[in-house]
Write a protein that binds this DNA or RNA. Sequence first.
DNA 1: GGGCTCGATGTCACTTGATGACATCACGCT
DNA 2: AGCGTGATGTCATCAAGTGACATCGAGCCC
Lengths: 198, 198
Amino acid sequence: MGRWEPGASGRFRQAAMDLYLERGFDQTTVADIAARAGLTSRTFFRYYADKREVLFDGSETLRSAMVEAVDRTPASAAPMRAVAAALDAAATMLGERRDFARRRQAVIDANAELRERELAKMASLAGALADGLRRRGVDEPDASLAAEAGIAVMRVAFARWVGDDETRDLTAVVRESLTQLGAITSRGGRRRASGASR
Amino acid sequence: MGRWEPGASGRFRQAAMDLYLERGFDQTTVADIAARAGLTSRTFFRYYADKREVLFDGSETLRSAMVEAVDRTPASAAPMRAVAAALDAAATMLGERRDFARRRQAVIDANAELRERELAKMASLAGALADGLRRRGVDEPDASLAAEAGIAVMRVAFARWVGDDETRDLTAVVRESLTQLGAITSRGGRRRASGASR
DNA sequence: GGGCTCGATGTCACTTGATGACATCACGCT
DNA sequence: AGCGTGATGTCATCAAGTGACATCGAGCCC
């Protein structure tokens, strides 16, 4: 498997994922990944800006899906409706292949640098959402607040879904969490409002 | 200024801040910082785990202040009340020295790695808040949701405060933003609820 | 004072991530 | 066949960290 074997980026992704799982992120060198992929470490950096990025390949796709969901929401709808649509889109994309999501998350959770990168990706999602909201006429700080709140919900919901024993639909968890956020933040929110979820 | 000059960590902090501002984070090497501080690069890494950490020295103090604010909140209060208290504490700590906050933020905003680190610090704050809430009996997912929402508010409010021309009190901006989040997330939130802020 | 311990700092060596410059190879086109 | 082009390899280099060990300075005890 030398030069010109197709699917270089995919081979890198696979090799990296395997190695990160086998021996951990720190214990894996870029040279290792390249060797397993049948390529050179220099080539690795032509596909991925750094050693972490190889785990976040689909995030651009996810972002555009969420933005499109925002754009598709009727202009008359409230900001949080558009955010909810974006979260639905994200949940649909991530909701299949829970086993993959689990393994990937295990790798990320085990390493501080990877957690940082994931946070950055989520922040970028929040930024894109806020852009989308502004584009539809939502002013600041509402646009940023709605976007950040939405991403916060997504973060919490995803973590619950990944760590859950029973098989639940990610979309359902996301919607539940979004509703729950509304309950919590509503003024006069009473203590122990006897949660509707779990 | 050789060995045994006191205040090594402070000298590192000062030197790093200066250099990051002068020529940028990437263009500053740890050896540069150490030289300006009159120390060695090896010593730098004894005080700070990496080149970024030197900009986040007070974050531990901030965290404990916020956690204490949560703990000090009456047990009968709703979760978001405790979160609000924590945000108030944070705003009080960060609210003075806006010029310093500005310069620091300019450095951070200019560099992706630093932005990542800042996100990590904020995530750690959210985690500490969620812990505090659980300690006072708040169940999941409410604890995580409230904590994450609170940090989201803090992020937005801080950005607005730093980027604002007029001089406003950070505490006021934070409270405003928190109220605004409640308005946005409340079910039936109508479009363009004619914002109360800005 | 002399010698002692101990923590802070320095020195050295090394691994690894990341990047620039340049050479080479495989493929499609004419 | 010859050529151009993009993908890959090779080489050199820098900077971030890290471990092992030496050294210095200060306080302490006798």
